[in-house]
């Protein structure tokens, strides 16, 4: 869908007074850059270089931890963040791939429907969650975090997969309906009000509303749920 045939390399020029919001997606060069209440030309804050290499790709070099909404609603192509990434990375994403070599801030893959997000470092809170008041979290696609994750992973998740290779915080798969969450390390409270889907976790504090059935815990009993939590340490 991106349709571009270039690699766009973007580098910050200077320190930002406040966080920048820029919905940077492959194949698009006319995205707006917000510096607080001002809309500024991209050149004011970033060096931009187009490399005609037939790729559909964006290369973000330097520190992007204060740039929000990278890859929002992205449909195809690739974004590589060589350093850290700011909030709302890959929210509403439908296709393509985002790779973050450093860490990512809160809200990666919020309400995403497809595509892939790989964070090689740590990620913040609210991975693959629903935005405030919305009834569906992540619906499809895949999120891989190679380091640790914060609190709230895959809330109201309806499909797709989240893999955390390190530890995660509290509230894994709250009100999850479908899809799969894998936490290879430890997690805090897990599975609350789960209606369906599957959670695999190294170790966790299971919500006291699950009943053991063979290898797995089924619940949440309070919502007559049919979710399953498999705790690898015990089994």
């Amino acid at each position: 869908m991106g349709g571009g045939n270039l690699t766009i390399v973007i580098k910050p020029k200077r320190e930002f007074e406040v966080c920048v919001e820029a919905e940077i997606v492959p194949g698009k060069t006319d995205f707006k850059v917000y510096l607080g209440k001002e809309v500024v030309p991209i050149e004011e804050l970033f060096y931009v270089e187009n490399i005609d290499d037939g790729e559909d790709r964006i290369l973000l070099q330097g520190d992007f931890s204060r740039v929000k909404w990278i890859g929002k609603s992205m449909k195809g192509g690739e974004i590589i963040v060589e350093g850290n990434a700011g909030m709302h990375l890959g929210s509403f994403m439908e296709g393509g791939r985002i790779i973050v070599k450093g860490n990512a801030d809160d809200w990666i893959g919020g309400m995403m429907k497809g595509g892939e997000i790989i964070v090689e470092g740590n990620a913040g809170n609210r991975i693959g969650c629903n935005y405030w008041g919305e009834s569906k979290g992540m619906e499809g696609g895949k999120i891989i975090v190679k380091g640790n994750a914060g609190n709230y992973v895959g809330e109201k998740m309806c499909g797709g997969e989240i893999i955390i290779e390190g530890d995660a915080g509290d509230f894994i798969g709250t009100e999850m309906k479908d899809g799969r969450i894998v936490i290879k390390g430890k997690a805090g409270y897990t599975g609350w009000d789960m209606k369906g889907g599957e959670i695999l976790v190294g170790d966790c504090e299971l919500s006291p509303s699950f009943v053991k059935e063979g290898e797995v815990f089924k619940g949440d009993v309070n919502v007559k749920g049919n979710g399953s939590v498999k705790i690898l340490k015990i089994n």
Partner: peptide
Amino acid sequence: RSIVNGHEEAVP
């Protein structure tokens, strides 16, 4: 809540 909803078996 599990107890109120009649699911004592889910409580450790």
